[in-house]
Design a protein around this nucleic acid. Sequence first.
DNA 1: TATTGTTATACTCTATAACTATA
DNA 2: TATAGTTATAGAGTATAACAATA
Lengths: 162, 162
Amino acid sequence: MHATAAPAQATVEETTIALSALARHLMGEAGRGFMREVERLGLSMPQVKALGLLEEGGALTIKAMSDRLGLSEPAVSRGVETLVRRGLASRADDPDDRRCKRVSLTAKGRRTFESVSDVRTAGFRAFVESLEDAEREALAAGLRPLMQRPEIAALVPEGASR
Amino acid sequence: MHATAAPAQATVEETTIALSALARHLMGEAGRGFMREVERLGLSMPQVKALGLLEEGGALTIKAMSDRLGLSEPAVSRGVETLVRRGLASRADDPDDRRCKRVSLTAKGRRTFESVSDVRTAGFRAFVESLEDAEREALAAGLRPLMQRPEIAALVPEGASR
DNA sequence: TATTGTTATACTCTATAACTATA
DNA sequence: TATAGTTATAGAGTATAACAATA
């Protein structure tokens, strides 16, 4: 055992435990309002995921959605059918490959996803607002370096940093 | 607008945005292995939640589980039946009120939940290990004050801090 | 022949309603 | 009369298999 190895290892475990506890708290607390909103809109979780996928992804094929959602093609086909029937998505023939259908979000679908997404963000905001100034400042300082990572920065919604 | 209000408000929004992005990253990344383990064990999400409830809660009635899981009593009754059949939970008559059944975790059920829980923690640990030393130190410093909050400290598993 | 999407079928999970047994 | 739990039934969502259209 090296003296220099101990602190880093301790920080890994300490940070893992703290991060786990925080994540569980956020999922439980902020997730409640999220699930209520999803239910209020009469959506299922896979449908919400599909809307989120389409919101970032553009015009996707059933196959592409099936791969990224981890659902069978028939399940996606039927799910998309439901979204189209409710006016949240639209289906168009692909001119380049007529076997494919291209699924896109309608304006209503986009609004619906944003509504769900806003409720989730509001849950996180409520948590942040519940913190003491010192706690919030410390948390902000701890998160700031992580936001430089592209894989995390990519998850910031478009107009959020304005 | 007061000059002192602006920084705090800015920190709330900045922190909310960063926390949202981190939470989404963790749910997506660490959640993947979690879902794989749940599937590998042939469990559904409500079953996992039920195991978690029983793990902390002790001997619960169907009614109590129904309330806390947000599921109907018949759904819980059948779900528990499945857990009992698989040897993960046990059902006993309540001697004080013979209308009630008391549901508890078996040793196998406890091991099963810990297995699922460990995979989730491992996902968080992998993220923490992926960080640079400076990032990890900063995150640890940012989380430390939050761990003083009882509602978050309560979510730390029993033997985790040893 | 291979691939995309849909339809056919069966299974699981859920909720509401009706029922049994206790209180 | 009210409550805890189960059973009956129906609806939503899923997967596998079989099929149609296109490449």
